[in-house]
């Protein structure tokens, strides 16, 4: 008998134990405490988060002394509305996925904004809604999402460098 093989399944399952590195570990530990920390480069003074252990533009190492606490409030500088479901998704579409420039940081953080999708806009002021302390894991999931503060929107001039 002749068989035509048109398809074969060869699943690949490989376990990894990933370690976040020292700088990111400090960031993740702070999240459990309900704090956001960034790294201030000793050369260019810019605050980057999550910390990487090096300044991405100066290429010099950072260390724990360079850690600074960043506000958990900020401005939506860019966003999109996610309408499609995908594997591992934790909330039901549609929802707002945004680039949020936290006060005191020089790069935006990516997270969700809990707002009706037709109310989302660039310049909106938002604040982190933290998970209760007992439920916080060392992950950005320690912040459930960001919620609008009701403050007046930031002017485009104030954040356009980041959008």
């Amino acid at each position: 008998m002749n068989y035509a093989v048109t398809r074969m399944l060869a699943p690949v399952r490989l376990p990894f134990v990933v370690t976040p590195g020292e700088a990111l570990s400090r960031f993740l530990s702070a999240l459990v405490e309900g704090r956001l920390i960034g790294e201030r480069c000793s050369e260019c003074s810019k605050v980057v988060l999550p910390p990487r252990g090096a300044c991405p533009t100066c290429g010099i190492a950072t260390n724990p002394r360079d850690n600074v606490t960043v506000s958990d409030g900020g401005t939506v500088v860019m966003f999109c509305i996610v309408n499609i479901p995908f594997e591992g998704q934790t909330i039901k579409p549609p929802y707002v996925y945004a680039s949020i420039l936290l006060d005191g940081a020089d790069v935006p953080l990516l997270h969700l904004v809990e707002v009706p999708v037709d109310k989302a806009r660039m310049g909106m002021r938002v604040r982190a809604e933290w998970a209760p302390p007992t439920e916080r894991k060392p992950s950005l999931e320690a912040i459930r999402w960001f919620v609008p503060t009701g403050e007046p929107d930031a002017s485009y001039e104030a954040y356009k460098e980041y959008a």
């Binding site: 370690t19 590195g21 020292e22 700088a23 252990g53 090096a54 190492a61």
Partner: peptide, 11 residues
């Protein structure tokens, strides 16, 4: 190593 790639490399 407890360091990540960037930390190993920058050194």
């Amino acid at each position: 190593s407890s360091k990540d790639e960037v930390e190993l490399l920058v050194d």
